[in-house]
Design a protein around this nucleic acid. Structure first.
Length: 497
RNA sequence: GCUCCGGUAGUAUAUUCCGGUCAAGUAUAACGGCCUCUCGAGCCGUGGACCCGGGUUCGAAUCCCGGCCGGAGCACCA
């Protein structure tokens, strides 16, 4: 019966806020993959658990190094929705540059920030020695002038950057006077959404930091790689007189045998190593979807893992176990004969009509029906090469739901046998092998794309002709597959056993 | 190197905050059995863990210190 579902630990300090607001904020520079599942599902789930709001925010403020691609905005929306995470509100940072400018100016005005012209190496040297650079002590008026020059195009890329004043004695050099906005030559590198409209762009800590407050995020749920970013942003919050939201930093999630690296995925696609974003070798949501991995399984897995700060290493097996639990009761059963070999059975005494249940535990789902009509006492079938290889002369095996046969001869491309009774009880006692089969005349060509992108050629039973794309079925003794295309030939993607 | 964070069975997680009920719970994987016209599912059972060393204490997985191991950050990336 229903075991108690694992629950997430409660969010801290929810009572301090009128409404819990969380966000998922991807950079649209790649499609989403399993590595993002934690951020999406945890953020969404916590919002729902607290009757709050879940926001999608595109962090597309780097037209240079991590350049956003127009196409990905929509793919990301689609993936998030597919995961069952309904988006209550959406923001796109490239629409919000004037807002960031306004706050940059305020910070400059209040002497909480300065425009730094130092070359990065020079600044680094100073900051490592806890020494202010010359720009840090500039008067506000000079900073505002420099700022104006930044906006007007008076600086080329790399010539000036706005820095937030922090504590030069902070033990972590990474938080000392961090950069907030920089110049990007968008004539050369236009942004996919706003083109060359802006040439001063905020960095992550500026944009995300301001937005979290401005949008009203109460709980930030993100990876622990952002821990120092919180420390940095807290300085800006202090300058602005704001209170930093609650923040949860979970550990890194790895899947053994899958690389969750955007750059490798992008590179592999560009080089043609992969067939596309849904290549079965990838752990992108598009690929998982194509293989019949259900969003519910992913969600359950992520919730079971929870928001711990320790890193987790999951395996595909874990995901498959979650998914199998869902698929097993939902999926109808069919036969698929991989690498078919002919089986001739002699001395078949009569015509057999069989009804094969679509689901072993759910007879109400109905049956597939086949008629086996012997010609001159011989009935012809196709069986899997693997099963043929296991058949030894003299052995009795059972064709599932049909009858028993005794092997007479085994050749590379065909097996001969003779009828050996109808009794199921008999073979059960003798523990004979049960194999699936397709009777001659009822075969439907079928290819199954495996997780390593190899293709398993074979035939499916003719009842599969009416399967609709996107249906997930189980090929008995083979595994769960998702129907991808179904025209002259069935094209399916393998999920798992 | 510097700054953080973490370390419970193969994997993941509960207990850790507020020390005793912990000879450590659960899920999955493994193994064995039962059941079942699938090599699937289900049921029953078995084995399997508190990183190490000190300290505090009547008592430590839980608190303290040191070590070891793992991870993250140290970008004019997000």
């Amino acid at each position: 019966m229903a075991k108690e579902e694992k629950r997430l630990p409660p969010l801290p300090n929810t009572d301090k806020y009128a409404q819990v607001v969380t966000r998922f904020s991807p950079n649209p520079d790649c499609v989403l993959h399993l590595g993002s599942a934690r951020a999406i599902i945890l953020s969404h789930e916590y919002a729902r658990l607290n009757k709050g709001k879940f926001i999608l925010r595109f962090e597309d403020t780097d037209p240079k190094v991590k350049k956003p691609v127009f196409d990905f905005y929509d793919r990301i929306r689609k993936d998030v929705n597919w995961l069952g995470c309904k988006i209550d509100e959406e923001y796109i940072q490239s629409d919000r540059l004037p807002i960031y400018y306004e706050y940059a100016e305020r910070l400059l005005q209040n002497d909480n920030a300065y425009v730094c012209e130092c070359p990065p190496e020079h600044f680094r040297k100073n900051t490592l020695a806890r020494r202010p650079c010359d720009c840090r002590q500039l008067p506000v008026t000079e900073n505002l002038e420099r700022w104006k020059r930044m906006l007007e195009g008076g600086y080329a890329e790399g010539e000036a950057v706005v820095r937030i004043k922090t504590d030069l004695n902070h033990p972590n050099p990474a938080v000392r006077d961090w950069p907030a906005l920089r110049v990007i030559d968008t004539e050369k590198r236009p942004h996919p959404r706003v083109g060359s409209k802006y040439r001063v762009w905020p960095l992550y800590n500026m944009a995300a930091g301001l937005d979290d407050h401005l949008i009203g995020i109460t709980h930030i749920i993100r990876g622990k790689e952002h821990l120092t970013n919180m420390v940095r942003q807290e300085y800006m919050y202090k300058h602005l007189g704001w209170k930093y939201p609650e923040a949860i930093h979970y550990g890194r999630l790895k899947i053994t045998g899958a690389f969750l690296s955007k750059s490798k995925i992008v590179q592999g696609i560009r080089e043609g190593t992969y067939t596309g974003w849904a290549d079965p070798r990838l752990a992108t949501f598009a690929a998982l979807r194509k293989r019949g991995i259900t969003p519910h399984a992913i969600k359950k897995m992520i919730i079971d893992v929870g928001p711990k700060t320790a890193d987790v290493t999951l395996s595909w097996k874990n995901l498959y176990a979650y998914n199998r639990k869902i698929l097993d009761s939902e999926s109808n059963r069919y036969f698929f004969v991989s690498e078919p070999i002919e089986l001739k059975v002699k001395r078949v005494p009569r015509v057999f009509r069989v009804e094969l249940p679509l689901h072993p535990e759910k007879p109400e789902r109905g049956f597939r029906e086949y008629t086996v009509t012997p010609e001159g006492g011989i009935a012809t079938f196709r069986i899997a090469k693997k099963d043929a290889a296991n058949a030894a002369v003299g052995k009795v095996i059972r064709l599932m739901e049909l009858f028993n046969v005794k092997i007479k001869s085994v050749r590379a491309d065909s097996v001969e046998a003779s009828f050996a009774g109808e009794s199921y009880e008999e073979v059960r006692k003798s523990k004979a092998q049960l194999i699936h089969w397709i009777v001659k005349g009822e075969e439907f060509p079928c290819e199954v794309v495996m997780p390593d992108a190899s293709v398993n050629e074979g035939i499916a039973e003719s009842a599969c002709k009416k399967l609709k794309p996107d249906t997930v079925i189980q090929f008995e003794r083979f595994g769960f597959v998702r129907i991808n295309k179904n025209d002259a030939k069935l094209n399916a993607y393998y999920a798992h056993k």
